[in-house]
Design a binder for these strands. Structure first.
Length: 452
RNA sequence: GGCGAGGUAGCAAAGUGGUAAUGCACUGGUCUGCAAAACCGGUAUGCGCGGGUUCAAUUCCCGCCCUCGCCUCCA
């Protein structure tokens, strides 16, 4: 299959290091707050890639880290008045819940930064021994100027970069050197040969990638905003330490609002738990997959619900088809495979999905069971590969639907009561009770609940 | 200042040197007691603007305008 590579800025044939195996490292979340749909886009994209590899017979080792120690987490801890580890654990669970709702498969391993200080220290020591890093007063910095290829991923020239304002505050040899280890006074800290401190913000990925995937692996992924400096620094420190590191880099684009990147700091982010009140997890996943992964996806509430409407057409076809026939394993349409193999061209692939649904609906109308079977198996197979077949799609809004039904009957009952036609009113109430509901007339109106 | 992405129908979003996928919305029709669903059809004479190359450009080249991102944390 053809895949983009940020490193070379072109699309090329994917060739795994080891036949029929793929090793992937994807930057996961810094668990400092609730997940928003931008986080989910990246997660869904790499989940899809992973599924596509699996579908094609690859054995995939998929590592997605959790950054559970970081200054922002410490800030949040102060703000929320609870220990940093509780903050990290809490938001990690929120991410896990969100991943599950969107049908994102659990990674092969989900390593936490705090569990890999040993590996980080090893890597840092390695860099110091190789004279690619230096320790000053308890801090350890990577010597960027000694690494000639610096900037290869993001195409940056060192002398053209803007310099962060606090770069002079520390004793770096070179203004662009970045911290591998930081001496800090406040807790938590971990012991190292250079004293107590905390890890710099890039070293964990290099250390954990090496630990779980080895010194050379196939793919490193993450959101586009991680390309520089995070991924650039990862490459520098890993290669300087003698690792061959990732062969290919993939970056997923943003979810935007009014053309602007969605992010917590801009205050325009949409938390997953809020969005899931509007649409189901599968509908949200479908929406996030509706643009090519390297294109910005422009969010609007209308776009989201319209995507849900479209997705619903697909699932309702599946439901109606399955009422008529039993299906076994199907195959994927050739055009679908071609699209997926072409750097995951989801818009084209979804087009094929809709065409197949249309064919299936026609077969359904004409009671052409052979054609129906073909279309149905193909659609189901496509949904499976896309990770869109999780759970009973209809149950998400069940309460809302029941409420609509109940309110209609209750309105009728109120009308009957108003004209003192209590026989009718009571008959209506009995129907609801018989259906398994409890009806209560309260001062503020009638309320219903499911009888336990 | 450097690097990068992008401007395609009401919205979202593909795509190609030969004349614009798909979904939603809208609309005509079939079906239906009426709806809904489904299906058939219609809806960008034009793909930011101006030049150029070419038999032919939305697609290549040049210039311009605009939007956004990264270089500070960020999916």
């Amino acid at each position: 299959m053809q895949l983009y590579n940020t490193l070379t800025r072109d699309v090329s044939e994917f060739i795994p290091i080891e036949a029929s195996k793929v090793s992937m490292y994807v930057c996961g979340a810094t668990v400092q707050g609730n997940p928003h749909i931008g986080h989910m886009r990246a997660a869904v994209v790499f989940d899809l890639l992973r599924r596509w590899f699996s579908h094609n017979g690859f054995e995939v080792r998929f590592v997605r880290n959790v950054t559970d120690i970081d200054d922002k987490i410490l800030h949040t801890a102060v703000h929320e008045n609870r220990p940093w580890f509780e903050v990290a654990a809490h938001y990690e669970r929120e991410f896990t819940n969100a991943y599950n709702a969107l049908g994102i498969l659990p990674p092969s391993v989900e390593p936490r930064a705090t569990g890999h200080i040993t590996q980080m220290v090893e890597l840092i020591q390695d860099l110091i021994d190789r004279d690619m890093a230096y320790e000053i007063d308890g801090d350890v910095y990577f010597a960027v100027d000694k690494y000639a290829a610096y900037g290869e991923l993001s195409n940056q020239k060192l002398d053209q970069l803007m310099v962060s304002e606090d770069s002079a505050e520390r004793n770096k040899h070179f203004k662009h050197d970045f911290a591998l280890w930081k001496k800090v006074e406040d807790q938590p800290t971990w012991p190292t040969p250079w004293g107590e401190g905390r890890p710099g913000w890039h070293i964990e990925c290099s250390a954990m990638a090496r630990f779980y995937l080895g010194k050379k692996f196939d793919i490193h992924g993450g959101g586009l905003d991680l390309a520089f400096p995070h991924h650039e620094n990862e490459i520098a420190q890993s290669k300087a330490a003698g690792d061959n590191f990732a062969q290919r880099w993939l970056h997923s684009a943003w979810v935007t609002q009014s053309g602007e990147k969605m992010s917590k700091s801009l205050g325009n982010s949409l938390q997953v738990q809020e969005v899931l009140k509007l649409v189901s997890g599968m509908e949200l996943r479908y929406y996030l997959l509706s643009a090519h992964y390297r294109s910005m996806l422009e969010y609007s509430p209308a776009a989201l619900t319209e995507a849900a409407t479209g997705f619903n057409r697909i699932t309702s076809f599946v439901s109606r088809g399955q009422e008529l026939i039993e299906v076994s394993d199907g195959s994927l349409p050739k055009d679908f495979i071609t699209a997926m193999d072409d750097d995951l061209n989801l818009p084209i692939a979804l087009g094929v999905l809709y065409e197949t649904v249309r064919r299936g609906n026609t077969a359904l109308a004409e009671n052409d069971l052979d054609s129906l079977r073909l279309a149905l198996t193909e659609v189901i197979e496509m949904l499976n590969v896309l990770g869109l077949s999780q759970g009973a799609i209809a149950t998400e809004n069940t309460h809302q639907i029941i409420d609509g039904l109940v309110q209609a009957l209750l309105t009728e009952r109120e009308a009957a009561r108003a004209r003192k036609d209590f026989a009718t009113a009571d008959a209506l109430r009995d129907k609801l009770i018989a259906a398994g509901l409890t009806i209560e007339d309260t001062a503020t109106g009638v309320r219903w609940s499911i009888t336990r």
